[in-house]
């Protein structure tokens, strides 16, 4: 098998990698947003329970989470496809990280913004929706891209629960032909080609947003 054949064989697993990524996003984005917002607004016991949930998904290693749900759910009578288990555990893990930047972004927002909204007679939900969230989204875009990269990389773990993603394809090919340097270089290359553009894009975003917020600080800092 030539390097090119191996590479092509690995790319056959791309659809699984992408499917799990997109399904994972469907868990990560809502969970990150809702958990972060709740953690910001709630108080007392309800806040503590939200924090516990976030910490559970964040502090337990994702590989352990995936195995835990993959193997435990059937014993309590819940049968989910490997794809769904993988996507939900990866998604919630990444989303739990994301929730912390949602909360941080809400806290970082100038308190005057909310007050100005109140002074205009807007309701709290309207302030969250029209004033806080749009400003947060901008600040959070770089984090979002970074979390997306983590999610894509995390999908390599589905190979361990026998799903035929790119990493699993590489292992299958290694059964057919003994050429580890070519196989694993091709596998690294496949992920690199997929993720390098996103990495570059994320860095560009970070610079752009960083500049914007710097300007903002300058304006707010004047004469204080």
């Amino acid at each position: 098998m030539s390097f090119f054949d191996i590479f092509r064989g690995i790319l056959e697993g791309m659809d699984v990698t992408l499917t799990v990524t997109f399904m994972g996003l469907c868990f990560a984005i809502p969970f990150g947003l809702v958990a972060g917002i709740l953690q910001h607004f709630l108080k007392g016991a309800s806040r503590a329970s939200v924090t516990m949930i976030i910490e559970f998904w964040r502090s337990t290693p994702v590989l352990v989470l995936m195995f835990m749900f993959y193997y435990s759910l059937p014993t309590v009578g819940i049968y989910l496809s490997a794809t769904l288990v993988a996507a939900s555990t990866l998604g919630l893990h990444v989303g739990a990280y994301g929730s912390q930047s949602v909360r941080a972004a809400l806290q970082a927002l100038d308190r005057g913004q909310v007050e100005a909204g109140f002074a205009l007679g807007l309701r709290r939900p309207a302030i969250l929706w029209t004033i806080e969230l749009p400003q947060m989204v901008r600040a959070m875009l770089p984090t979002f891209v970074n979390q997306l990269i983590q999610l894509v990389k995390g999908t390599s773990l589905v190979a361990l629960i026998t799903m035929s993603d790119m990493t699993h394809r590489a292992k299958e090919i290694s059964q057919l032909t003994f050429d580890p340097p070519a196989i694993y270089s091709a596998l690294l290359l496949a992920y690199f080609i997929l993720l390098y553009p996103i990495t570059i894009f994320g860095r560009w975003l970070e610079r752009k947003v960083g500049q914007g917020s710097g300007k903002l600080m300058e304006d707010h800092g004047r004469g204080v």
Partner: peptide, 13 residues
């Protein structure tokens, strides 16, 4: 009642 703040508090976005 309208209010004007020391820090303007315009919405930058």
């Amino acid at each position: 009642v309208g209010m004007v703040f020391q820090q303007f508090n315009l919405f930058p976005h």
